[in-house]
Design a protein around this nucleic acid. Sequence first.
DNA 1: ACAAATTTTTAGAATCGCCTAAAAATGATT
DNA 2: AATCATTTTTAGGCGATTCTAAAAATTTGT
Lengths: 220, 220
Amino acid sequence: MTHSEENYLKAIFHLSRQGTGTISTNAIAEQMDTKPSSVTDMLKRLADKGLVNYKKYQGVSLTESGRYSALAIIRKHRLWEVFLVEKLDFTWDEVHEIAEQLEHINSEKLIDRLDALLGHPKFDPHGDPIPGKNGEFKERDKELLSKLPVGSKGVCVGVKDSSATFLKFLDKNSIALGQQIEVLDKEEFDNSMHIRIGEEQLLVSHQIASNLYLKPSEDS
Amino acid sequence: MTHSEENYLKAIFHLSRQGTGTISTNAIAEQMDTKPSSVTDMLKRLADKGLVNYKKYQGVSLTESGRYSALAIIRKHRLWEVFLVEKLDFTWDEVHEIAEQLEHINSEKLIDRLDALLGHPKFDPHGDPIPGKNGEFKERDKELLSKLPVGSKGVCVGVKDSSATFLKFLDKNSIALGQQIEVLDKEEFDNSMHIRIGEEQLLVSHQIASNLYLKPSEDS
DNA sequence: ACAAATTTTTAGAATCGCCTAAAAATGATT
DNA sequence: AATCATTTTTAGGCGATTCTAAAAATTTGT
Ligand SMILES: [Mn+2]
Ligand SMILES: [Mn+2]
Ligand SMILES: [Mn+2]
Ligand SMILES: [Mn+2]
């Protein structure tokens, strides 16, 4: 598989775990920052190779084999991200770009060894689950902060937007994975939320609250 | 720069430290396992980008900038080889193929951190020197075993052929870098050599002796 | 149901990197 | 100097990936 094919598979995989059903040409084009006509071209090629189910005008979905390949690439991406943070002291806002390159390195043995070196991590630096060697993949239990009612508590377990700007914002306000968060109040006006993080209190906009994932505590 | 351009620069660099003078189209084609016409194509492109000096029928050489780029790639290649051996327990015959991929990863910070993690190594697993961050590069003092006179001693510091088959042969005969070697005798008939390695004695063919580098001891 | 708006595909072209076959230049031999 | 062999370049083409512009299909709105 070429780098380009791998990137398309990844994009299709990510789109299918968001919206429900089949994926549109335009959605892929937007995700990948290319033109729809280029997407159509590639979908034909991927279909020829048995990686996607594609029929003109009908949208696209991954085949068994396409899904397996996509998961292998995502596994590599996320393991490399862990490596960069754990072993090379990168911050969580720096690793994605580099992992975009490293994910295309082709060596099963390399990935197995890397996985072992890192102690078989289950999640990447952004809280996303790392697929297993044989394509096992389960999303973790989590809820957007913005969806939680006033009074509930939870632990921060992930981000939806993992752009460098958002991640740096979180750093600046000492919001990190593993942190306990409590919803103190919600403003009717703009849906911003008063939250407690450890000892601190903070008012976060709706946009922020809808990009932070919590694992709600049992007792809420 | 594309992967292909980087590979051509590397090939030209390596050829220029072997034979003397400018590099022929055919030599590059052979080194890279492509056709001469493809090489001509690429040389034009590299010349346009100011990476090589090229004039039709006159051979080619690296410009300042081309040499600098080539060294950067070789630096990455060799640092990754060290990483694979030191941190992921690969053997020295396994690392080259993977490093051929990793050398194209583009991130200065990544390489700086990797260099630091490895303790700023000076040589790769095959005894080849690792170019410095700013293009410093000096070949180490070494001599082919086949060139040494009977009675001389030295330490094994590198291999000329670093193919997996040769490296595995060396492993099998416990010849490793850092090993003390003494030339006991030379056969007139086929130039094979009787050598002593530590406690062991061994008869090696001329072909083997002309692919092992020693640093001759002062007193020889 | 039909026209308008939107989405998707096709047609045609560019670039990169490679190939084969033919032509041109260079170098060696008489 | 003329011929022959070798090296190198050119010409033309192919697959991969992308683009723009135009055509076709689908969806939406009245
Ligand atoms: Mn990422
Ligand atoms: Mn991630
Ligand atoms: Mn190597
Ligand atoms: Mn090496």
